[in-house]
Amino acid sequence: CHSECLGNCSQPDDPTKCVACRNFYLDGRCVETCPPPYYHFQDWRCVNFSFCQDLHHKCKNSRRQGCHQYVIHNNKCIPECPSGYTMNSSNLLCTPCLGPCPKVCHLLEGEKTIDSVTSAQELRGCTVINGSLIINIRGGNNLAAELEANLGLIEEISGYLKIRRSYALVSLSFFRKLRLIRGETLEIGNYSFYALDNQNLRQLWDWSKHNLTITQGKLFFHYNPKLCLSEIHKMEEVSGTKGRQERNDIALKTNGDQASCENELLKFSYIRTSFDKILLRWEPYWPPDFRDLLGFMLFYKEAPYQNVTEFDGQDACGSNSWTVVDIDPPLRSNDPKSQNHPGWLMRGLKPWTQYAIFVKTLVTFSDERRTYGAKSDIIYVQTDATNPSVPLDPISVSNSSSQIILKWKPPSDPNGNITHYLVFWERQAEDSELFELDYCLKGLKLPSRTWSPPFESEDSQKHNQSEYEDSAGECCSCPKTDSQILKELEESSFRKTFEDYLHNVVFVPRKT
């Protein structure tokens, strides 16, 4: 048989008469490798580009789960590009990614509803959504962080984005990388972005840091009482949809009607710091009717980097990364020049730590249904340095008659930039024990000054392991946590139920 035959053949030295091919099969003959313009397919066939392209389009058009959109890589027609490569849609070739590779997620039936953290986790790592997304989240724990972890990498949506009755959302900033909504599939009414009845939605994105392009379709905003109209108009300008909307697409009466839409800028007039305090004062603000001013709200939190936005980490279910302080308005003076500047002394802060701070007014709604208010920009203030805590785990070892090696770990709280350490030492008198000992005694162990690591005695271990207080009263049991108490109650309830079950099964009433 021919060298490319495997198993047997019907005619000697003829690659077209093989029972099976050793390498690849091409047009009725066995070959060692697939010549151009053919590609290896499933490690035994040679196919042309049209064959591989037909497989790709067949799966793409069917949208069946589990099928493969075949691509070409290293002269092979394979189910998908290997790690580190992405497909070129024009020629199906796998090309190296520039940075992290995109991950295209194809949605069944063309859309997916995100109504819980669990459903959001199914899209973790996706960068391109081939379909439409509907966000409908009523509640949950730590929602802002969970949504950002699972949806934060999405850069492109081919269909539309719909935010509907998501009472738990305060902001859409968890879509931190969303840059493009194509609108290839539109919501009824030709809408590519749809926001309806979101009672706590206050911000779409921080438009000073976020760009969003909507290729096709219109915007729809109705019944978002805490979303200011200025935020919607800003989205029109940034996304390129200005002029597409009709009169009733953006409701003037049901958007922002319960919001404090600040239209003035508060400026800080005085800032002073110490290692654990920050004193702030800002310019006074009074609405047209000074009785509408209820006070100020001061927001602050630790910020290692200057990239904080107002609604980071917030949701309507209680999660809030900001510390909020309510401040009463100052006494009002008739003389504008003698107006008191409101302020606040922030206490209990960490030394040498940068804080993000902003302040906003708290006002009631005027009778004319106009909203007044003022808010400052987010500023960054760093507390002063102070003395560091003591170095940890000092170790001293003498390696000769004239040297001592000293080692330690950095302090747990540096409280500033540590530039150097101060080492103090003092000579001590020799131990009298060394002169009084009889060095001729056998088995004498000389006193040693070398360091030995501390260890816990058996008594201390027994005390720590004991669940009861000892007789001397030195140790006591740790208080039980809520989960331990709940577990004990469940076990007790189970024992009672099981005992009742045994009584009912074992003891049967005697027939009379």
Rank of each mutant, 00 (worst) to 15 (best):
K103S: 11
V104R: 04
V104N: 02
C105L: 01
H106L: 07
L108I: 08
L108F: 11
G110R: 06
G110W: 08
T113P: 09
D115P: 03
S116A: 04
T118L: 03
S119V: 07
S119W: 02
S119R: 04
A120C: 13
Q121S: 08
E122D: 07
L123K: 01
L123F: 09
R124P: 01
R124V: 13
G125V: 10
C126F: 01
V128Y: 15
V128E: 01
G131Q: 01
G131Y: 02
G131L: 00
S132G: 09
S132A: 10
I135F: 04
N136T: 04
I137T: 12
R138N: 15
G139E: 15
G140H: 15
G140E: 05
A145G: 13
A145S: 09
A145N: 13
E146M: 02
E146S: 04
L147M: 10
L147Y: 01
L147E: 00
A149R: 08
N150P: 06
N150G: 04
N150R: 08
G152Q: 06
I154Y: 00
I154P: 00
I154M: 14
E155F: 07
E156V: 14
E156R: 03
I157R: 00
S158I: 13
S158G: 02
G159T: 01
Y160W: 03
Y160D: 01
L161G: 00
K162G: 11
I163M: 10
S166Q: 12
A168P: 15
L169R: 00
L169Y: 05
S171K: 08
L172I: 15
L172D: 00
L172G: 02
L172E: 00
F175A: 02
L178R: 00
R179P: 00
L180P: 00
L180Y: 08
L180N: 07
G183T: 02
G183F: 05
G183A: 05
E184M: 02
L186F: 12
L186N: 04
E187D: 15
I188W: 04
I188K: 07
G189P: 13
N190E: 06
N190Y: 08
Y191C: 01
Y191W: 11
F193Q: 00
Y194Q: 06
Y194L: 05
Y194D: 10
Y194V: 07
A195N: 12
A195M: 11
L196Q: 13
N198L: 05
Q199R: 14
Q199M: 08
Q199G: 11
R202K: 09
R202P: 01
Q203D: 07
Q203L: 04
Q203T: 11
L204R: 00
L204I: 09
W205S: 02
W207R: 02
W207M: 05
W207H: 08
W207N: 06
S208G: 14
S208T: 09
K209W: 10
K209Y: 08
H210L: 05
N211V: 12
N211L: 09
L212I: 08
L212S: 04
I214L: 08
T215W: 01
G217C: 09
G217E: 01
K218P: 12
F220S: 13
F220L: 08
H222R: 10
Y223L: 13
N224L: 10
N224Q: 06
K226A: 08
K226E: 07
K226S: 06
K226G: 10
L229D: 09
E231L: 13
E231T: 12
I232G: 02
I232P: 03
H233D: 13
H233R: 05
H233L: 02
K234R: 13
E236T: 13
V238A: 07
K242H: 03
G243A: 05
G243P: 01
G243M: 06
Q245E: 15
R247E: 02
R247C: 05
N248H: 03
N248L: 10
I250H: 06
I250P: 08
A251N: 15
L252H: 04
L252G: 13
L252Y: 04
L252F: 14
K253S: 08
G256W: 09
D257L: 13
D257S: 03
Q258G: 04
Q258N: 07
A259K: 13
A259T: 11
A259S: 10
C261I: 06
N263Y: 02
N263E: 13
K267I: 13
K267N: 09
F268M: 07
S269F: 00
S269W: 02
S269I: 14
I271Y: 06
I271R: 02
T273D: 01
S274F: 11
S274N: 03
K277N: 15
K277S: 06
L279D: 00
R281N: 01
R281Y: 00
R281W: 00
W282N: 01
W282D: 00
E283M: 15
E283Y: 05
P284E: 15
P284C: 02
P284I: 09
Y285T: 03
P287L: 10
P287W: 02
P287M: 10
P288L: 09
P288W: 10
P288E: 14
R291G: 05
R291Q: 14
D292K: 02
D292L: 10
L293V: 05
L294Q: 03
L294A: 07
L294F: 09
G295M: 15
G295R: 02
M297V: 03
M297D: 11
F299V: 04
F299D: 00
Y300E: 01
Y300M: 14
Y300L: 10
K301E: 03
K301N: 13
K301T: 09
E302Q: 10
E302Y: 04
A303L: 03
A303M: 05
P304S: 04
Y305G: 11
Q306I: 02
N307G: 04
N307L: 09
F311L: 05
G313T: 11
G313S: 10
Q314Y: 02
A316Y: 05
C317L: 09
C317Q: 03
C317R: 00
C317G: 13
S319K: 04
N320W: 13
N320R: 14
N320M: 07
N320L: 09
S321H: 11
W322V: 07
W322K: 00
W322Y: 11
T323S: 07
V325A: 14
D326R: 02
I327R: 02
P329E: 04
P330R: 12
P330L: 07
P330M: 05
P330N: 11
L331F: 06
S333E: 13
S333D: 14
N334A: 07
D335C: 05
P336I: 03
P336L: 06
Q339R: 09
Q339M: 08
H341N: 12
P342H: 12
P342I: 11
P342Y: 04
G343D: 01
L345R: 04
L345M: 07
L345G: 05
M346A: 04
R347H: 04
R347W: 14
L349P: 01
K350G: 03
P351T: 04
P351C: 07
W352C: 14
W352R: 02
W352T: 10
T353Q: 09
T353N: 02
Y355P: 00
Y355K: 00
I357H: 00
I357E: 00
F358Y: 08
F358P: 00
F358V: 11
K360C: 10
K360L: 06
T361W: 03
T361I: 05
F365R: 14
D367S: 10
D367V: 14
R370T: 12
T371K: 08
T371C: 15
T371V: 08
Y372V: 13
G373Y: 03
A374G: 13
D377K: 08
Y380A: 02
V381L: 15
V381S: 04
T383C: 03
D384L: 06
D384N: 02
P388V: 01
S389P: 02
P391L: 04
L392Y: 14
D393T: 11
P394M: 09
S396K: 11
S396M: 04
V397Q: 15
S398F: 03
N399H: 10
S400M: 08
S400C: 09
I404L: 01
K407A: 00
K407S: 05
W408V: 01
K409N: 15
K409E: 15
K409R: 14
